[in-house]
Design a protein around this nucleic acid. Structure first.
Length: 311
DNA sequence: AGGCAGGTGGCCA
DNA sequence: TGGCCACCTGCC
């Protein structure tokens, strides 16, 4: 179930605050990591399952089922982008002339863009339309459980697009997908009829790749940008969702700007790593909302003294 | 108890 | 191009 019996713990060349770790694994980039009561994260991506534990000093270590531990250890480097270069990339962002960006960068030190499998990322973000993270996680958990292959005892990968092509729309609806089921079914059919299409798309330069992704039913600019940013390492992709719309209005004065205009502003202002900047802005805005809600939820039960008088 | 949620596609001026 | 609306349904 929720345990990974496996290899010994090995160190990761990464130290983060618990909050940044949570924001990285479970902040809306990926939907298959869960924090367990013992404080360990367990996650699945591609054919990998891993546990990540954090020491009091913030340093991280990982473990995986013995049978796939070597593979996981290799993939983890890529998935978490543990190679050098992040600090240099951050430094090229326009934080020197953008005080709000500077604030976001210092609030989430070490926050990074994951490098997830392309097809999996497409599936997850096709599920994401008008859903919150909790619900997206439920959908993909069910998709994996019911239609994905088992990769370790108790853990399934997400179904591949080839596998999804054999699942009816009605069956997909059983995974809480709602109207997204039709899009996913149609996309699976299209991809089954066009072998290599997805792989070719992943290899294309950003503008062409985005244009092609938008041809898929259920994929618009926002989803395409998320897939390219989180599933293909295209750091110039700048997804504009309701959160970014809100933060660009609040922090940059872009009142009543439309998504396409905000996207253009983002690319112009933040440059070729706009997507990286976007992730910091996104994290900051989510935290600001959690800390001091713009619209505090009224506690209706306080309006009576505990005795409810009906009628 | 209902409204709302990290969009997209289609239809109308 | 721009604005509106239907599309599913489980959470808060």
């Amino acid at each position: 179930m929720s345990t990974v019996n496996g290899s010994t713990w090995k160190p990761l060349a990464l130290t983060l605050t618990p909050e940044v770790l949570a924001e990285t694994l479970d902040g809306g980039q990926s939907f298959r990591w869960n924090l367990h009561t013992d404080g360990e994260w367990i996650g699945v991506w591609g054919e990998c399952v891993a546990k990540i534990a954090q020491a009091d000093d913030g340093s991280l270590s990982w473990s995986a089922p013995d049978a796939i531990a070597d593979h996981v250890g290799h993939e983890l480097i890529n998935y978490l982008r543990l190679g050098p270069g992040l600090a240099e990339q951050i430094d090229t962002l326009p934080w020197r002339s953008d005080a709000h960006l500077a604030k976001c960068l210092e609030t989430f030190p070490g926050l990074r863009i994951l490098r997830q499998p392309f097809g999996d990322t497409l599936l997850c973000f096709m599920c994401s339309a008008t859903k919150q993270i909790v619900q997206i996680k439920q959908m993909v958990a069910l998709l994996a459980k019911r239609h994905g292959r088992e990769i370790a005892p108790g853990f399934n990968r997400l179904p591949t697009w080839a596998e999804l092509a054999n699942v009816s729309e009605l069956t997909l609806r059983g995974c809480l997908l709602g109207f997204r089921a039709r899009y996913i079914h149609q996309t699976a059919s299209f991809l089954a009829e066009n072998p290599g299409w997805l792989e070719a798309t992943e290899a294309l330069p950003y503008p062409e790749a985005k244009e092609r992704l938008c041809l898929l039913p259920g994929v618009g600019e926002k989803v395409a940008d998320c897939v390219l940013l989180f599933g293909a390492g295209r750091l110039e992709a700048f997804p504009v969702d309701v959160w970014i719309l809100k933060t660009m209005e609040r922090r940059y004065g872009l009142t009543n700007w439309k998504p396409a205009q905000v996207a253009q502003f983002g690319r112009a202002h933040f440059g070729t790593l706009a997507g990286l900047a976007q992730q910091y802005l996104f994290a900051y805005e989510r935290r600001a909302t959690k800390t001091s809600p713009i619209q505090p939820r009224p506690n209706l039960s306080d309006s009576t003294s505990g005795l409810s008088s009906d009628k």
